[in-house]
Write a protein that binds this DNA or RNA. Structure first.
Lengths: 252, 252
DNA sequence: TACTAGAGTTAACACTGTTCACGATGAACG
DNA sequence: CGTTCATCGTGAACAGTGTTAACTCTAGTA
């Protein structure tokens, strides 16, 4: 039994041109994920069914098991592609015009996040809703981080925040002012991001993430409908982003 | 075909003693929901299966259709009981000791919310995660509000907030300072709650809900694990609640 | 006591994820 | 060139899913 990675085209040093079969395989993999996404869109994760995907592609269900070990790993792969797409959308918004001031770019990126969530509610629900037991449970930690595309999403925000904070260093607690537990918990992450900001700013960053998540998720999940029946939370979102900007010291 | 509500015990004026059958029926209804919850706990909503519940109760699957029209309405009913339980837990925390100052009671209630979410992750996910397509979609609006127990949950927070704000009226935007769209959107809700606080305070209330939701949901759903791998967000939650208190003018 | 409304059962249908044994195809190698 | 073998895809099958229909039996009512 050969290892597909090591033994294909053994003469080429590394990252050789993919063989025809590999290209075909990769192509149907994306076809599978595209079909899975179509199903996700019109009925949530539980409508993403192996036979449904297979029918869309004109083949039978067991064939998909040549490409994914199980429905759950397929959903996990779908999550990765969605994370990538979302990260691309945010990057495009963030770096669209590097001449505009950072504060505005921060707001533009936040609005792009909200817009992506509203334009792709099912996808957003899969990525940011309650975790589905089998899917992605250990994808966060088990597989090598390079394979977890969720980190790209986080990096977009982190880079933006770091730039913003360095240009506008609003006061953050000094390390000794932090709860020792929190300081210890965040030490690993602080290390991982190369200490580009002090650990007190990491706490501020997490606080911003929590607030942004709350603003977008409550609207996208309908948890504001009790007060805003028409479901359009844009005006409230404006208000919330104003608060967030104030917290970042961007009170212009 | 008789209407079960109107024609049972027609001699009694209203809300007469339930007949034996009615009591038995109600009892098995709660048994069904208890079994459904057990399944929910150990595998998320998708493990809540009609046959699984029936087996737990020692009967067969079709029997459940005497009690619920479909699996989805069963899940909807489960949501209602969970909302009730959560509201009870928050009420107990909120009104545990009416002599303690409101600020502390607000914090205690917030911690009770977080604790309930962490102690009942699956239930929290069902209530506050991405909406499941079939279940509860119209339960929010279609059925009469008295049947939607989610409003009890909201009322606990609203009462607490209203008391708090009246005792501590931090400045809020005047109506004419609000985005007209937002003012219009919130008019109905403002009316519905009897205008117990000005509409600017309603915006503040929603902002608090968004932040509280963000703080609890990110932790309960694991969306903070990228920075806090051990998953214990208590220390960060302390920090976030401090911010929330500051926003409410409770900077003691 | 006779009747009937209701709870519960079995059988069945159309699905679901998944495994297995098989056939076809095409790329690689002697 | 011909052989070989990994790979892709199929059909059949199994256990499990939600749901409906027809049926039995029991308990409450007239």
């Amino acid at each position: 039994m050969m290892n597909a990675v090591s033994a294909v085209n053994p003469d080429s040093p590394h990252r050789s041109q993919p063989t025809r079969r590999e290209r075909a395989r990769a192509a149907t993999r994306v076809e599978i994920l595209e079909a899975a996404r179509r199903l996700l869109i019109d009925g949530g994760a539980e409508r993403v069914t192996v036979r449904g995907i297979a029918n869309d592609l004109g083949m039978t269900a067991p064939a998909l098991y040549r490409y994914f070990d199980s429905r759950e790993t397929l959903l996990g792969a779908l999550c990765n592609t969605l994370y990538d797409e979302l990260a691309d959308a945010l990057l495009a918004a963030r770096d669209n015009d590097p001449t505009t001031p950072l504060k505005q770019r921060f707001l533009v990126t936040s609005y792009a996040f909200r817009q992506w969530a509203l334009d792709h509610r099912a996808e957003f629900g899969l990525l940011f809703g309650a975790p589905i037991p089998g899917v992605m449970v250990d994808k966060h930690l088990e597989t090598d981080p390079a394979e977890n595309r969720g980190m790209r999403f986080g990096q977009v925000w982190l880079e933006l925040f770091a730039e913003l904070w360095r240009e506008h260093p609003v006061s953050v607690p000094k390390p000794h002012q932090l709860d020792p537990r929190l300081r210890e918990q965040l030490a690993g992450y602080h290390e991982q991001i190369g200490r580009i900001v002090p650990i007190g700013a990491v706490v501020l960053y997490l606080s911003c993430w929590v607030q942004l998540y709350g603003a977008v998720a409550t609207e996208a999940f309908g948890h504001l409908k009790f007060a805003i029946p028409d479901g359009n939370g844009e005006a409230l979102f404006n208000d919330l982003m104003g608060e967030l900007a104030a917290k970042l010291g961007l009170k212009h």
